[in-house]
């Protein structure tokens, strides 16, 4: 089956992102396709490269980043939600006059249309959080 996933909560404060990650891993292991994972609301904070959690805890942004690399996943951060929350890629950082960006490898920033498209193109859109 072709899945898309929407993640609506940031890392750590709620379990939604962890659960979405476990779901994605399990779906891939079971032979399903992940069309796209879309990060909305505070979910955009999962894409930060500046998180430094304690060493004995999981590193949620890095887990997503590695999963993306391993399975060539399309991780999309909503630009409207990202701009509000200070999450930006290199191009946007430059455009806004910031010295650096804070997007971890494996994520890209794009519009809400990507969420609608994911709904249209996938057999199931599974929403985590909120």
């Amino acid at each position: 089956m072709k899945f898309s996933i929407q993640v609506n909560e940031g890392p750590y404060q709620k379990q939604a992102s962890d659960t979405a990650y476990q779901f994605a891993k399990a779906a891939i292991a079971a032979g399903h396709e992940i069309f796209r994972i879309f990060f909305y609301h505070d979910g955009v904070n999962n894409a930060t490269k500046l998180a430094v959690p304690p060493q004995d805890d999981r590193h949620i942004p890095k887990l997503w980043s590695e999963l993306s690399k391993e399975h060539n996943l399309d991780l999309v951060v909503c630009i409207a939600a990202a701009q509000r929350r200070g999450m930006m890629d290199a191009d946007e950082a430059k455009r806004q006059g910031f010295e650096d960006n804070n997007l971890i490898e494996g994520f890209r920033i794009s519009g809400l249309g990507q969420l609608i498209e994911a709904g249209i193109e996938s057999d199931r859109l599974v929403v985590f959080g909120a």
Partner: peptide
Amino acid sequence: ESLEVVLIGAAF
């Protein structure tokens, strides 16, 4: 943010 999705989604 729901309203923002609705407005963008309307284009589809």
